[in-house]
Design a protein around this nucleic acid. Structure first.
Lengths: 128, 128
DNA sequence: CGGTATCCCCCAAGATACTG
DNA sequence: CAGTATCTTGGGGGATACCG
């Protein structure tokens, strides 16, 4: 594992970044992308399942973030049925799955921070 | 390492998050914070050293992000001298150092993405 | 040297309502 | 069921100039 940051202008799909960390933050950063990926980590989910599990995200934002993740090849969108009610299932692509270890490192670190310095407003430790 | 995301409203320094991933992204997410932490990973640096190494960030943004990292306890700021020219050195706190393994996972993943799918606009593999 | 002050722009993200 | 459309807002981030 090479942990030295490749810099000197990195390019992906036409977008230019000053280094690979910037690139990573663009692909999976922001307020919701990593949370979405976490929810898809173990199993594919329908749109409404994601919504119910992520209570504090709006439909619009969820939809938009999913589209970006799809565009960047991290998430696959599969449609079942032609007329409403249709069924749409989101899952991690093979590329998306490569991010899971990083996701778990992020999660474990955040957990530790909360245990050391934070509070659990309403105690709960379950899949969100 | 617990990789199950603690959810159900987590609180840190008065801020409330829906889960620990959201918390992590708030502490170290955004366009520059992780890049700054990367630069401080192995050694403390002066303000102008950081500026020179991160050519594409503006003074204002660098200064602002450093302040936020300091406020959240990830980075320490030390001032030498009283009158200009003064010397200010930034370094990782003990807490900040706990994030290094995550940072390295992020870096390694980004590197792999570039090698698999990206381009090195001007070939270079060195500390940025 | 190591920043602030000021101004500005853009877009992430929220709220609400509506639709194929 | 799985979204879009529209409007609004907050703040991240940039440009430039100035300061202790």
């Amino acid at each position: 594992m090479n942990t030295e940051c490749i810099s000197d202008h990195v390019k992906l799909k036409g977008r230019i970044y000053p280094c690979t960390i910037s690139l990573t933050m663009d692909l999976v950063g922001g307020k919701w992308k990593a949370v979405i990926l976490y929810h898809l980590k173990d199993e594919a989910k329908r749109y409404n399942e994601l919504r119910k599990e992520m209570t504090s995200v709006t439909e619009m934002t969820l939809s938009l973030q999913l589209k970006q993740l799809e565009k960047d090849g991290l998430v696959a969108r599969k449609v079942y049925g032609r007329k409403p009610p249709i069924k749409v299932v989101y899952s991690l692509t093979e590329f998306g799955k490569t991010f899971v270890p990083v996701l778990e490192a992020i999660t474990a670190w955040g957990n530790q921070v909360v245990l050391d310095k934070g509070e659990l407003v309403s105690v709960g430790k379950h899949k969100l």
